[in-house]
Amino acid sequence: MSKFGELIDLQIPVLLSFYTEWSEPSVAMHAVLKDVAAAMGDKCKVIKIDVDKNEELATALRIKGLPTLIIYKDGEMTWRQSGEQNANTLINLIKEFV
């Protein structure tokens, strides 16, 4: 969990995507996240977290639906939503926190 704290305690927004390989909507988000990362460059960090491999973290954050997307900035959660999102929506959200 201490690594998680280091991951989210950045001055730029950090978009976390919680997914599993067996969830079609989760896998469909991979391409969207790649587009978001490309559009935002070094103004944002995009991280995918497999809940099957990170059960303790997923439980601590009460991840229920997949995919679950969370934006952190300076170690604080600023936005959270479960379900698929499109790249433009995510880019516009992230820009609010840059």
Rank of each mutant, 00 (worst) to 15 (best):
L66M: 04
V36I: 12
Y72G: 05
G83P: 00
I63F: 07
L33V: 10
R80Y: 06
I71T: 11
T68Y: 04
L57W: 10
E84M: 09
G5T: 07
M77H: 07
T78C: 09
S23G: 02
A28S: 06
L93A: 06
L33Q: 03
M1H: 10
L69A: 05
I49G: 03
S82P: 00
V32K: 05
Q81V: 07
K73W: 02
G75L: 14
F18Y: 05
T89V: 13
L61C: 05
I47E: 13
V36L: 12
K73C: 08
D35H: 03
D52V: 15
G83W: 04
V32N: 01
L90W: 01
V36E: 04
G65L: 11
Y19E: 04
G83L: 11
Q85K: 09
M29W: 03
L90I: 07
H30D: 03
A38R: 13
V51D: 09
K73N: 05
C44S: 12
Q11V: 04
M77R: 15
I49K: 00
F4C: 05
I70P: 01
H30P: 00
E24S: 13
S26P: 06
A37D: 13
P67S: 06
T20P: 01
V36W: 08
I47W: 10
V46P: 01
I63G: 01
W22V: 12
G75M: 12
W22N: 10
L15S: 08
G41H: 06
L66V: 03
K45Q: 14
M29Q: 02
